[in-house]
């Protein structure tokens, strides 16, 4: 059987069911607000958002692979491009660009061209340490872990904190060899 050609982010996004982005934005806002009330410490909220993102990422990867027809990427560079152009597009309807590669091709930056999470958002003085979009870094980390890549994802620039862009640094820590999940005698 001939391999199925991978689909572009736009093509996938056009074919999936969609909802109003404001409902999504406001729901996310409601979550962040709940966390801030419950956990009080901004640091704890950052952690919880990252954890939620991770939970989403490890499930979202299935849908991503099923709908995008993307097959194995040859290297981390391709992986980053696929996340930026297909992944972001398919779920959030926006794309990102990949820049700032390091010499050995294991660390790069994703710069969001649009960010549906932050509409109507401004950080009050009491929340200056908050990484409002921390759910996104968790999603990427979780999803990549499911395809055998341990990564570290951190925010470099955040417009809510006064920077001029949304920039995520994705660093490949190690590639875990794939193992058959069961032993023979089980």
């Amino acid at each position: 059987m001939a391999p199925i050609a991978p689909r572009s982010g736009d093509a996938v996004f056009a074919n999936v069911e969609r909802v109003n982005a404001e409902l999504f934005t406001l729901t996310y806002g409601a979550i962040v607000r709940q966390l801030l009330t419950d956990l009080e410490e901004v640091e704890e909220v950052n952690k919880q958002l990252d954890q939620m993102g991770y939970n989403i990422g490890i499930r979202l990867i299935d849908e991503f692979l099923a709908k995008s027809n993307v097959s194995r990427c040859v290297d981390f560079k391709e992986t980053a491009e696929v996340i930026a152009k297909v992944g972001f597009k398919m779920f959030l309807g926006v794309s990102a660009s990949v820049t700032n590669w390091d010499a050995d091709g294991t660390c790069c930056s994703l710069i969001l061209e649009d960010n549906p999470l932050v509409d109507f958002v401004e950080l009050p003085d009491t929340c200056q340490g908050l990484y409002y979009c921390n759910v996104l870094s968790g999603v990427i980390r979780g999803a990549l872990e499911m395809v055998s890549m341990k990564t570290e994802v951190t925010w470099v620039r955040d417009m809510l904190r006064g920077d001029d862009a949304y920039e995520l640094k994705v660093k490949l820590l190690k590639q875990v060899p794939e193992e058959y999940p069961y032993k023979d005698d089980e």
Partner: peptide, 24 residues
Amino acid sequence: LSKGKQEVSLSAFAFLFSELVQYN
């Protein structure tokens, strides 16, 4: 103010909503 025509995928919302429920 945007016109409110932007969309995200339904599954992105479903994932987020499920986290909201699970957290609560």
